[in-house]
Amino acid sequence: MSKTPLTVRGAELIKAELQRLKSEERPRVIAAIAEAREHGDLKENAEYHAAREQQGFIEGRIQELENKLANAQIIDVKTLNAGGKVVFGATVELLDLDTDKEVSYQIVGDDEADIKSGLISVNSPIARALIGKEEGDEITFNAPGGEKHYEIVAVKYI
């Protein structure tokens, strides 16, 4: 199985969620199950069944996060010597050549992507068009809304 790229920030967020699930959510749901068992007949105990369902969700999420970390290639963009090229983890300032608006995106792993926060997946059409390019280059790619044209204004490794 190939490694999935992940930024240092993305790995820290996953670790924090994993820690919260293990130290807060898991003990809380175990206590809820124990309390529901004290109420007697488990066949008709809705609290018990709801707590068991929540426990299954939490355990599944813990396993999912542990697998993501185990299969992650954590990349610290600050340590890369990319020579001004757009690489995974780079923050790219772009000028939309159609509207003259500037936008800024950081290229991140699939699990970290959040377009509203300016985080785009390395597998997105725009990121694939950007990878390997340099400041001053122009890119054209097909987006869901049609063909887009951008100029790379700046490449930062932060």
Rank of each mutant, 00 (worst) to 15 (best):
V103N: 06
A70K: 14
Q54F: 04
K156L: 13
E44D: 14
G10M: 00
Q73M: 04
N123P: 01
L18D: 10
I75V: 09
V108I: 09
I152K: 02
K156C: 05
K133R: 15
V77R: 02
K148A: 10
G60V: 10
G145L: 11
A70D: 12
V108E: 04
D96L: 06
V77D: 02
D98N: 09
S117Q: 15
V108M: 04
D111F: 02
Q73T: 07
E24H: 10
K68P: 03
K156Q: 13
I139P: 00
V155G: 02
A154F: 08
G83M: 06
T91G: 06
G145S: 14
N123F: 07
H149I: 03
E24A: 12
I126V: 13
H39W: 14
E12Q: 15
G89R: 00
E102S: 13
S121I: 01
Q19V: 13
L13V: 08
Y48E: 03
R20I: 09
E35Q: 15
G136F: 07
E138T: 11
Q55C: 01
Q55P: 02
A11T: 06
R28G: 09
E12I: 12
I33K: 05
N67I: 11
E25T: 11
K101T: 13
K15T: 07
I33T: 05
S104C: 07
S23C: 09
D114W: 04
G56F: 04
G10Q: 04
L69I: 05
E66D: 10
G10K: 00
T99M: 09
G84T: 08
Y157A: 06
L119N: 04
E47H: 12
T7C: 01
A90S: 15
Y157E: 11
D110I: 08
A50S: 13
D110G: 07
G56H: 07
I131S: 05
A16L: 12
S124P: 01
Y105F: 10
G83E: 10
V122P: 03
P27A: 06
A50H: 09
L21S: 02
R28M: 12
E66H: 04
E135R: 10
E147Y: 00
N123M: 10
E44H: 12
L21T: 00
A31C: 08
K116M: 11
A11W: 00
K22H: 08
Y48G: 04
A90M: 01
Q19R: 13
E147V: 15
Q54I: 06
